Amino acid sequence: MSAAPVLEAVDVSKSYGRVRAVTDVSFDVRPGEILGVVGDNGAGKSTLMSMVSGALAPDSGHLRVAGRDLTPHTIGAARAAGIEMIYQDLGLSDNLSIVENVFLGREWTGGVRGLPVLRKRAMRERTRAVLEELGIDLHDMNVLVEGLSGGQRQMVAIARALVTENEPRVMVMDEPTAALGTTESDGVNALIRRLRDRGYAVIVISHRIPEILSMADRLLVMKGGRNVYHGPTEGLDVERCVQLIVAGTLATAGEAVR
Rank of each mutant, 00 (worst) to 15 (best):
R226A: 15
S26K: 05
E239T: 14
G114T: 13
C241W: 00
L191R: 05
E8K: 10
P168Q: 07
A161Y: 09
A43D: 01
D186R: 15
V156M: 09
E167F: 08
G61V: 13
S13I: 05
R64P: 11
I86C: 10
E33S: 11
S149H: 02
V19W: 02
E33T: 10
R218G: 07
L92F: 11
R169G: 09
D28A: 12
L191Q: 02
P72N: 07
G187T: 10
L144G: 08
G231Y: 03
T127M: 06
I83N: 08
A216F: 01
L180A: 04
V25K: 05
L191W: 07
G248V: 12
A129V: 01
R193L: 15
G110N: 07
T23K: 14
G248E: 05
V12K: 09
A179P: 02
L162A: 09
T177H: 07
S93M: 12
D24L: 00
G199F: 10
P168D: 01
L118N: 01
E184V: 09
Q243K: 08
Q154G: 01
M85G: 00
L244C: 07
G36P: 00
P58E: 07
D237F: 06
G54K: 09
D197K: 03
M215E: 08
P116E: 11
A55L: 14
I158W: 08
L7P: 01
I34T: 14
M171T: 10
R169P: 01
